[in-house]
Design a binder for these strands. Structure first.
Lengths: 146, 146
DNA sequence: TGGTTATAGTTTCAATTGCAACTATTAGCA
DNA sequence: TGCTAATAGTTGCAATTGAAACTATAACCA
């Protein structure tokens, strides 16, 4: 076994993914943080509330859809409610659940951040030709259910 | 422009990369954290010191090689020194610089963590056939200099 | 030289996060 | 029913992180 030999971090998949992912996420996040005062968690919560607007999601559902834990979502939603970007009601049939939705003010901000995020994604994908983009999606599909 | 339409997070590249990368990194990190009490930063510093053993790196060089900031490295190295996993001397010609190297005890732990990390990477790559693995590397090469 | 600027690394303090404990409510079932 | 277990969400506290300020040393240059 030569398994104990030093790793070459720059060829080590988990490290490369981590650096790439952080670079991209922080690049977008810095922009919407300075312009709109949103954290990553807050923006993700807004994004799923926008997408599933009709379904009136609960905090737990937001947590599932954003792959974040419920404490993070609780705090993020708390701030969004305090800023009147999200409206929180109690579920009629299950008084434990919350019923969340973007306010008009929340939609207004969402509609500015969404293109910004899309634009950044486009910038990244520009570095790949269309064949590579297809492979990347296929690879992410295969790796994602880890 | 329809750019303001809600994002589908599950198809949004930065989000997918972030979830995948966190899943992988935390999977490995939990293992070496419970077994050896190392944080991700600490392990990365050790990995770099192992790889460039001969060069006697400074903290700044470790920071560059691990893509972490100098404050994080300063703290990580501080803990590693406290645990006698890393030896820290002052550079002879430039007394600002530190000269870092793994101790035998540090090597002993490194030699256990390295195979663990490699094994985890193998597990991940097992989900891809060799053609996909080649494409993944090519894609990461093209995206990495962001 | 000497005076300014730059660099290496640490420290400080506030903000963020992560985990466990907690409250309130509902579900399951004998 | 009434008791126990499960679920939704919040809170508290300790640990981690991030940004700026700070110390010490070296480099630059008039």
């Amino acid at each position: 076994m030569t398994d104990h030999l030093p790793l070459k971090l720059e060829h080590f998949l988990p490290y490369r993914l981590s650096v790439l992912s952080n670079t991209i996420s922080q690049g977008i996040a810095r922009e919407y943080h300075t312009r709109f005062g949103l954290s990553i968690t807050e923006w993700r919560a807004m994004a799923v509330l926008a997408r599933f607007d009709k379904s009136k999601l609960s905090a737990r559902q937001v947590a599932e859809r954003t792959a974040m834990d419920k404490v993070a979502i609780s705090r993020a939603v708390g701030k969004l409610v305090a800023r009147s970007l999200v409206n929180r009601k109690m579920h009629q049939d299950d008084r434990r659940r919350s019923v969340l939705a973007l306010t008009p003010k929340g939609w207004f901000i969402h509609n500015q951040v969404a293109p910004l995020a899309r634009g950044y994604e486009r910038e990244v994908l520009k570095k790949l030709n269309s064949e590579e983009q297809v492979w990347l999606n296929r690879i992410l599909d295969k790796l994602s259910p880890l």
